[in-house]
Computed example of a mutant assay.
Amino acid sequence: MGYAIVWLVDIVITLMIWLIIASAILSWLFAFDVVNHRNRFVGQLAYFLDRATRPILDPLRRVIPSLGGIDITPIVAIIGLNFIRILFMRLASGPLIALLG
């Protein structure tokens, strides 16, 4: 059971990292008019990515100032999520696996 919880936490953090990367790439594609945001599929994809990444990025956007129109909050969020994943794997996974098996 402990292995499953450790695996699930690792997968959720990895998925959030990939969603943040996809959201950043899609925002660049919007900014440079590569994709049309009026396209139904692209609009739904952008809406999903925005809703999925907002709980992580919005608190960071309140703290980190804008650097001349460049949003660095995805980079900070990815570094923070990797830090949390490494910290969890090093500190909590061993006792969790030992406790739950």
Rank of each mutant, 00 (worst) to 15 (best):
T14D: 11
G94D: 03
F88L: 08
G68S: 06
G101N: 14
G101D: 12
I25F: 13
W18I: 11
L29D: 04
W18M: 14
V9N: 04
L99M: 14
W18Q: 10
A98T: 14
L99D: 06
Q44A: 13
W28E: 08
F32A: 10
I25N: 08
L15M: 12
G94T: 11
R38M: 12
F30W: 05
W7M: 11
V76S: 05
A24V: 01
L26P: 00
L60A: 07
V35W: 09
T53N: 05
I21L: 15
R38S: 13
L91I: 12
I21W: 01
I56K: 02
I56H: 03
I5P: 04
V35N: 04
I21N: 02
T53V: 10
I13L: 15
V42R: 02
I13Y: 00
A92Y: 04
M16T: 10
V6L: 05
R38H: 14
D50L: 03
V76H: 04
I97R: 08
V42S: 07
P59N: 07
F88K: 02
P65N: 04
L60D: 03
V9T: 14
S66Q: 13
L81K: 10
G80L: 15
I75T: 14
R90D: 09
L8R: 06
G80W: 06
N36R: 13
R51T: 13
R38E: 13
F83A: 15
I21M: 12
F83G: 15
F88T: 02
P95T: 12
L81V: 09
L8A: 15
A77W: 06
I84H: 01
T73K: 06
V63H: 09
I5D: 01
I70R: 09
L96V: 13
G69S: 09
I20G: 00
A52P: 03
S23Q: 09
L26Q: 07
P95F: 04
I84F: 15
T14R: 11
P65Q: 03
I17R: 02
W7Q: 13
N39A: 10
V34P: 02
I79Q: 04
L100Q: 10
M16S: 11
S66R: 14
R90S: 06
Q44K: 14
L60Y: 06
V76Q: 04
A77H: 09
D58Y: 11
I21R: 00
R38N: 14
L87K: 01
A46K: 09
N36T: 08
I56E: 01
D50S: 13
L29E: 07
P55I: 05
P65G: 03
D58C: 00
S23P: 00
I56M: 13
M1N: 07
V35I: 15
Y3W: 08
N39G: 07
D10F: 02
Y47K: 13
T73D: 07
D50W: 06
L96P: 00
L29C: 12
R90K: 04
P95H: 08
M16R: 01
H37I: 11
F88N: 00
A46D: 13
R61C: 05
R61N: 07
A22Q: 03
F30A: 05
F48M: 11
G101C: 10
R62I: 02
R85Q: 15
F48R: 02
